[in-house]
Amino acid sequence: MYAQLVETGAKRLKTLEEMSPEEREFQEKVDAETKIEPKNWMPEGYRKTLVRQISQHAHSEVVGMLPEGNWVTRAPTLKRKLQLMAKIQDEAGHGLYLYSAMETLGADRDEEIEKLHQGKAKYSSIFNYPTLNWADMGAVGWLVDGAAIVNQVVLQRTSYGPYSRAMVRICKEESFHQRQGYQILLDMMREGTDEQKAMVQDAINRLWWPALMMFGPHDDESPNSQQSMAWKIKRKSNDELRQMFIDQTIPQLEFLGCTAPDPDLKWNEETGHYDFGEINWQEFYDVLKGNGPCNRERINTRKKAIDEGAWVREAAVAYAEKQKQRAKAA
């Protein structure tokens, strides 16, 4: 899940009777699972919420390259280096693809990126944690891409056509990344030295809770969640998605021979789900507010890249303009 806490502007849900004829027609379409396309009428709140959600998702793909970039220059084998580079390249591609989907809603990529750099737009809190050993590259693929897929598989059915289609394509690539990530950990646990096995457990210990936080806060009382569900921008609650993720992940964790840093984690026969401990929500909101271990570094790196690249982009524009003039003159 790369979009957490998306503001909808809604205080409460409108009933069909309270809606304007246009709004009602729109809601009926959504209810009938007809996809909304860029040229269709849509409520301003729907448009704005989608822009926020898709841009958060796009920002997350781009910022998410940084914790991996931290190890791409130190990969342990040619094979692992190639895999990690391909994954990073895919993420840049996802970012581009998502920004394009966002632009179909009349938003501007540069403006949204500027908001990110000013700290006004969010990206997934997970990327504010550091990657400290090589096993993090496995754990990020397995847990972070894994958590993202749980959410995005559901979003393939989201009501906005371009976003839904982007999700279909992105999910395919991320499932691949997740399997590759898991394989990194499995190989180290099966054939690695004691030091390598310790790296794997250390990576899981550090990334476990932040991965669970990716699904966002409890959504029982949130008007944002209710509105997003009614618009079918969101299809399942944060807590449902988190439970799905835990249920599918624990058997994989056990197969690795590793443990989760959660003493309350246990199988519940009655519910048919795993019970798990309470997330440290203080930490979650701290990170969201900018007080995570790497928030400053991540944004500074991105801002610096775009600021210092300004002259390059200006040159490209100037050159294209000259070429156009020359073609006219010829």
Binding site: V62, V72, T73, I88
Partner: peptide, 21 residues
């Protein structure tokens, strides 16, 4: 690879990583 996340535009991120790959 050292330029990962530091290119002047997102298109360049992709292209640089592609060439490096």
């Amino acid at each position: 690879c050292e330029l990962c996340g530091k290119a002047p535009a997102l298109e360049e991120e992709m292209a640089l990583m592609n060439v490096a790959l």
